[in-house]
Amino acid sequence: MHCTIYKSLKKADLYLFLPKGILPDTLDATILTPFGRLEEVMHLDLSVDRALARTDAATVRHYLSTLGFYVQMPPGSQNWAHWDNLKAGIPRPADL
């Protein structure tokens, strides 16, 4: 699965992952409001062996498939709970 990553120009370290070919303006305004203006950062192949800095590719693929987007929060936010669980050896839910 390929995705496009956008960064918020309003809040540091806030990123939006979308399936490749889907534009941010197709999302509900409620989702986009915290981001302010977005800047496209990169395209990424979310293959099984792809390492990501703050989560794993399976989690991002899951949310892209079910919700149509994935939000990576700044350090110290809720998304870190999942990453901390993985580092502590607590497995992610079976459906991810």
Rank of each mutant, 00 (worst) to 15 (best):
M1L: 09
C3A: 15
T4L: 00
T4S: 13
Y6K: 04
Y6I: 06
K10Q: 14
K10G: 00
K11A: 11
K11D: 12
D13F: 09
L14D: 10
Y15F: 15
L16H: 03
L16C: 04
F17D: 06
G21L: 07
G21A: 06
I22A: 01
I22S: 02
I22M: 10
L23K: 15
L23T: 15
P24K: 02
P24R: 03
P24Y: 02
T26E: 12
L27Y: 10
L27F: 09
D28E: 13
L32H: 09
T33P: 00
T33N: 11
P34Q: 06
F35G: 01
F35D: 03
F35E: 02
G36N: 08
G36M: 09
R37S: 12
R37L: 11
V41W: 07
V41Y: 05
V41H: 03
V41S: 08
M42F: 05
M42D: 13
M42N: 11
H43I: 12
H43A: 11
L44P: 01
L46N: 00
L46I: 02
S47P: 00
S47E: 08
S47F: 02
S47M: 09
V48K: 14
V48G: 00
V48M: 10
D49L: 11
R50T: 14
L52R: 09
R54P: 01
R54L: 05
R54C: 06
R54E: 06
T55E: 10
D56M: 11
D56N: 15
T59F: 08
T59G: 03
T59P: 08
Y63E: 10
S65M: 09
G68A: 04
G68M: 05
F69S: 00
F69D: 00
V71T: 08
Q72I: 02
P74R: 04
P75W: 00
P75A: 06
P75V: 01
G76H: 08
S77W: 14
Q78R: 10
Q78L: 15
N79W: 05
W80C: 12
A81W: 10
A81Y: 10
A81V: 15
D84G: 01
N85T: 07
L86K: 12
A88E: 11
A88M: 02
G89C: 04
G89K: 04
G89R: 02
I90M: 10
I90T: 12
R92V: 06
R92M: 14
R92S: 13
R92N: 12
R92C: 11
P93M: 03
A94V: 13
L96V: 15
